[in-house]
């Protein structure tokens, strides 16, 4: 919103005294400071998460037991892992609907291709990730080269990914995931002695890694600049096409990996396995306060995931039905958008 408001200054070609630099931070009231903090970090969302947890604890005895907390964390981690790619894509003003397809592709790979003679499963997985990445890269290239809205191309790519894996696997859905994959997300398993399932640890590491990558490396800076202003980024000698290709490739590769983990969690794999995660990933990104083209970060998405998951867990626990959750999802996304993602007024574009 800040950006929107300030953006309007320039249209007026203002002639202002040169003292319009913002007042020093001491001059800000407490409310303004909180507001400015909220713009940088989804504070309200975090507080809401805590409040919802408290509500759950008050209403349901045993809600804060380690066992049930672990389950919540696993759910968070699964959504969180599925949302990494979406965060990156939204930051460059795109959207990735192929997520669902690549999740299915990853899940099918790990459940169906475990017994291919001569090819050990890890090799198979690497192959899947590489193929997925290449497809994603192609998606990014086509969108950028021909200025096509990614919604269509990613939709098609997801469909192709599901189709190809199904054809290769002969459409079978019999076999389950290998034990080690199941253990990744089994709530009662532990990680090197830590009392949390491996998937949660993986997610924690991913949060750190993605954040460092986004905000502390040149590649991350190029990505953010591409989202902030493609034209300015290109003029600053950033190859925005390379950024698009890379981001979509990474998003697809990560979705394949997320699919592998999900296969272990879900037990049986079908073509619709990825759909809820696709919608949740968009919801989490928006809810965390990442706007199309930025500002945003994976940390914000993480908070979005926490809120989204705790709310739905508590609602389920309290006997609310899927219907109420869906409605709440929608309302929450709208509220988050109203806070962050408003566009410029038409009159400021004249």
């Amino acid at each position: 919103m800040m950006t929107t408001q300030q953006g309007s200054l320039d249209t007026a070609a203002p002639l202002a005294p040169d003292i319009t630099a913002p007042a020093p931070p001491e001059g800000l009231s407490a409310a303004q400071r909180l507001l400015s903090l909220q713009r940088r970090f989804p504070l309200v969302q975090l507080l809401l998460t805590v409040a919802v947890l408290g509500w759950g604890a008050a209403a349901m005895p045993g809600f804060l037991d380690p066992t049930s907390l672990r389950s919540v964390l696993v759910l968070c981690a699964l959504t969180g892992l599925a949302s990494i790619g979406q965060t990156l894509v939204v930051l460059i003003r795109g959207i990735d609907l192929s997520l669902a397809g690549f999740i299915v592709a990853g899940a099918v790979t790990v459940t169906q291709f475990g017994d291919v003679p001569g090819v050990p499963l890890p090799v198979m997985l690497v192959l899947a990730v590489v193929c997925g990445g290449a497809t994603g890269g192609l998606v990014g290239y086509l969108c950028h080269r021909f200025a096509i809205h990614p919604i269509i191309v990613t939709l098609a790519a997801g469909s192709i990914a599901v189709g190809v894996t199904a054809v290769l696997s002969g459409g079978g859905t019999g076999a389950g995931a290998p034990g080690w994959v199941v253990r990744l997300s089994a709530p009662m398993s532990s990680t090197f002695g830590l009392p949390v399932p491996p998937v949660v640890v993986i997610w924690g590491l991913a949060v750190v890694a993605v954040s460092v990558l986004l905000h502390r490396t040149r590649s991350g800076r190029r990505l953010l600049a591409t989202g902030a202003s493609p034209v300015a980024a290109e003029l600053a000698h950033i190859s925005t096409r390379k950024v698009w290709v890379t981001v979509y490739a990474v998003s697809a590769a990560l979705a394949i990996l997320a699919g592998v983990v999900l296969a272990g969690f879900a037990g049986n794999v079908d073509n619709r396995l990825g759909n809820p995660y696709l919608f949740q990933s968009i919801a989490a990104v928006v809810l965390g306060g990442t706007a199309f083209g930025g500002p945003g970060s994976y940390t914000r998405t993480t908070v979005g995931v926490l809120l989204l998951t705790t709310v739905s867990t508590v609602l389920v626990g309290l006997g609310f039905q899927e219907a109420d959750q869906q409605i709440l999802n929608g309302v929450v996304i709208l509220a988050a958008m109203a806070l962050y993602g408003r566009e410029r007024r038409l009159r400021d574009q004249v």
């Binding site: 320039d10 953010l224 600049a225 034209v231 300015a232 930025g294």
Partner: peptide, 11 residues
């Protein structure tokens, strides 16, 4: 065009 071609607005 400073706003359209030069600055990275929210950065």
């Amino acid at each position: 065009d400073r706003r359209g071609e030069s600055i990275l607005p929210w950065m």
